[in-house]
């Protein structure tokens, strides 16, 4: 198994399709059946310094990858200020409609590969998602959250592994009642231990995936890094249409990662 593709946590905002975010370790409310205690902060980016994101935490994927990052996505990823910047305490990832190096859209994809990786713990981010058909985030192996801009009230929590990737991923959706993901910030997270991944939105635990839930091998036992991106079009969303408004932004208030002293 090609390990290095498999171990990614995705925070992705896909405009029409998926936005991902990570985990939210909802601080184990009293009536939740959560056994983990991930209180030890190991990484936090609060995005408090205007300008480019913190280079000690974030790299960029640039360009169109192979076959649109494997999903026939339509955007060209850049690290230009127009596509990724920090302002007023918020990371802003912007998908724009513009002709750029042969692509019709630009956006950005941040990754913490080789800079921050961790096995197990609580991964969470507070995000306001974009809206509109044709926007989504790329898939990670543990999708803290996937979101399609055409379904503004629904997110998905999924895992992808050998024998259960792509459309066969193990996932479950969560629908907000009387609210939507593109108007206010919401916290998305996972709590990940040796034999479980719990998915949260705000203070709601909506999905738990264990080794018994997957058909193939349980591969979530290595350090994972974080990806945050906003994709346009691709296999998992319809293409943007004439009602899709550009530019679209994914706003990230913070990314925080915790572990427990006793883990590892």
């Amino acid at each position: 198994m090609k390990v290095n593709i498999k171990y990614k946590l995705f925070l992705q905002g896909v405009l029409s399709l998926l936005t991902v975010v990570f985990i939210f370790g909802c601080s184990t409310s009293e009536n939740q059946d959560v056994v983990s205690n991930f209180y030890n902060l190991t990484m936090a980016d609060e995005f408090n310094t205007d300008g480019p994101p913190d280079a000690s935490i974030w790299n960029y994927n640039i360009g169109t990858g192979t076959n649109g990052w494997g999903n026939n996505e339509l955007q060209y990823y850049t690290n230009r200020t127009e596509n990724v910047t920090v302002q007023n305490g918020i990371l802003i990832i912007t998908a724009k409609k513009e002709d750029y190096n042969g692509s019709a859209y630009t956006s950005a994809r941040l990754t913490s590969k080789n800079l921050f990786e961790q096995k197990y713990g609580r991964f969470e981010a507070r995000i306001r998602l974009p809206f509109g058909q044709g926007l989504w985030p790329a898939c990670g192996e543990i999708d803290i959250m996937e979101y399609r801009g055409e379904n503004p009230t629904i997110v998905l929590g999924s895992v992808h592994g050998p024998g259960y990737s792509g459309a066969n991923a193990v996932s479950k959706s969560y629908e907000l009642k009387n609210d939507r993901f593109d108007t206010e910030f919401h916290v998305f997270g996972i709590e990940w231990g040796p034999d479980f991944i719990n998915y949260y939105v705000d203070d709601v635990l909506y999905n738990q995936i264990t080794p018994d839930d997957v058909e193939g091998q349980w591969v979530f036992d290595h350090p994972f890094y974080i990806i945050m991106n906003l994709a346009v079009g691709g296999n998992f969303v319809a293409a943007p249409n004439n009602e899709t408004v550009f530019p679209q932004t994914m706003l990230v208030d913070y990314v925080r990662v915790y572990n427990t002293i006793s883990t590892n």
Partner: peptide
């Protein structure tokens, strides 16, 4: 109704 899902005015 107050649906809370009416958004993104244009």
């Amino acid at each position: 109704e107050k649906l809370g899902t009416i958004a993104q005015p244009q």
